[in-house]
């Protein structure tokens, strides 16, 4: 057997450890529930306490079921891994699906002359200035969900962006992204989207290369780049899970920023937001949070300088909640088992 990417025995052992841990937690929560219910305590405070506790036990049960499902997913991945790693297995280099987590990766080649593209420039800069969202401007493509995610990456982990783009010959770049299983896929990019994102000076940028690679990624799936979800873009860019929330408290937002996570806010489904400076059906990067002032600053993927759609907008957290129906959190490092659980949904930490 040729082994690619992961030790499936270890993956199965990890799945079993998750299931065992969930079982232990389930037993302890059950014991805790019995204790809460057996206490002799009457009155409104007691009723409120028990109601809250029961609600949290229910939510904890849902969480543990989620962990069980993740465990099942791991087992499925292990089975798939064994299949593609076997001599007679499916998959293989060149089809864009090989190399789960390993060095071997499928490569998808840009024809270079696809309709609606321009040839890529040579020596597209990757320095801090070139990656700065302030110097980037979205074009006529409806991919704000992707560009706001790229801006987040540029703010939180610019080296990640650089490490995933390599000019292999003049005007030809390899952009590494990830498929639905978190497996690496290399897009060999020789062009950029016509009318797409450019630097403030109008030149092609690293964002342009990612935009082209993402278009190729979606083309392979029969999907259009116009319109999408930030969590899908984040997961494709990073290979790590991303989560969308209806709302996060200001402390939760600040915590995600402090952890170096990618944080986006969007008005998807909000056709005409009441905020004067925020555009409807649009995605922004959450650039900073000031818990003392109670404010959140978001960054528009559009070019700076338009007073009707400013590049940066600082607003109170209350305005943020009213304006943005969804906040998305992504990451470039492995998600912790309990990370992301409990924020924004009232579950809290155990």
């Amino acid at each position: 057997m040729i082994e690619l990417g992961a030790d499936t025995d270890m993956v199965r052992a990890h799945a079993q450890a998750m299931r065992t841990g969930a079982k232990t937690l389930r037993e302890r929560i059950s014991t805790l529930g019995s204790t809460v219910r057996s206490v002799t305590w009457t009155g409104p405070d007691a009723e409120e306490f028990r109601t809250t506790a029961e609600s949290q036990f229910t939510e904890a049960g849902a969480l543990l079921e989620s962990i069980d499902r993740r465990s099942d997913e791991l087992l499925e991945h292990a089975d798939e891994q064994d299949l593609v790693s076997s001599v007679d297995g499916a998959g293989g280099e060149g089809d864009g699906t090989a190399g789960p987590g390993g060095d071997e990766a499928g490569t998808v080649k840009d024809p270079g002359d696809a309709e609606g593209t321009d040839p890529a420039d040579e020596d597209i800069p990757e320095d801090d200035e070139a990656l700065d969202p302030e110097d980037s401007g979205q074009g006529s493509i409806g991919d704000c969900y992707l560009l706001s995610s790229l801006q987040s990456l540029a703010q939180r982990d610019p080296d990640f962006l650089r490490e995933h783009v390599k000019e292999v010959e003049p005007g030809v770049y390899e952009v590494t992204m990830y498929d639905e299983h978190g497996d690496r896929v290399v897009y060999q990019v020789e062009s950029v989207q016509e009318g797409g994102v450019r630097g403030a000076d109008g030149d092609q940028s690293v964002y342009s290369l990612y935009e082209r690679a993402y278009t190729m990624h979606l083309d392979a799936r029969g999907e259009d780049i116009n319109g999408g979800y930030p969590e899908d873009a984040m997961e494709t860019l990073t290979g790590r899970s991303a989560d969308a929330y209806d709302s996060l408290s200001i402390d939760e937002l600040a915590e995600q920023i402090d952890r170096g996570h990618l944080v986006n806010a969007d008005t998807g489904g909000m056709d005409d937001p009441s905020h004067d400076s925020i555009v409807g059906n649009h995605a922004y990067t959450v650039s900073s949070v000031d818990t003392e002032a109670g404010t959140v600053t978001v960054t528009n993927p559009w070019t700076a300088g338009d007073p009707n759609a400013p590049k940066n907008v600082t607003m109170s957290h209350e305005e943020y909640r009213e304006t943005f129906g969804r906040t998305t959190v992504g990451r470039t490092v492995e998600k912790g088992v309990f990370e992301g659980i409990g924020i924004g949904d009232g579950i809290g930490w155990f």
């Binding site: 006529s140 555009v279 059906n281 995605a283 559009w302 338009d306 759609a309």
Partner: peptide, 29 residues
């Protein structure tokens, strides 16, 4: 004009700040 994007026309940049698609009360900003 794509929603959430900036569309050039000659030397203008056109974009949609917001809209309503409600029948009888449709508008765009």
């Amino acid at each position: 004009i794509a929603l959430g994007a900036v569309t050039p026309w000659r030397d203008l940049q056109l974009a949609i700040k917001g809209f309503s698609g409600e029948t009888g009360a449709s508008y765009a900003k």
